[in-house]
């Protein structure tokens, strides 16, 4: 995938440097996982980036759900909703497309 050439990634396919992140990179990463990002995906991805910038913290799955519930609302925090968006794991893949490190609980 041309967009991803020259982008440093770790063994899990996560960006090594957030400075290399862009929306186009996020879309390319998702596409290589067979996913087309929609506004609903972006809402979670942007939430993830904002959370990290504010708190320098990576939540685990339970905390992630609680943080989403208390900021974006209950319906966005349901597993069904989140897994429909990111079938292979909402926390892991939202972080991946956000250009953030892989959360310790997702390895």
């Amino acid at each position: 995938m041309a967009a991803l050439s020259g982008i440093e990634r770790n063994e899990y396919g996560f960006l090594k440097k957030r400075s290399q992140w862009s929306e186009a990179i996020a879309e390319a990463l998702a596409l290589s996982d067979g996913l087309v990002l929609t506004a609903a995906h972006w809402e979670i991805i942007c939430f993830m980036q904002g959370y990290y910038d504010d708190y320098k913290h990576q939540p685990n799955a339970r905390l992630f759900a609680k943080a989403i519930k208390n900021t974006l609302g209950e319906e966005k925090a349901s597993s069904i909703y989140l897994y429909t968006l990111f079938p292979d794991g909402p926390l892991k893949y939202a972080n991946k497309y956000a250009g953030l490190p892989i959360p310790p609980s997702c390895i």
Binding site: D54, Y55, K56, H57, A67
Partner: peptide
């Protein structure tokens, strides 16, 4: 790590 204290309220 101190920034996480700001997140306490969202939890």
């Amino acid at each position: 790590n101190s920034l996480i204290f700001n997140a306490l309220s969202i939890y």
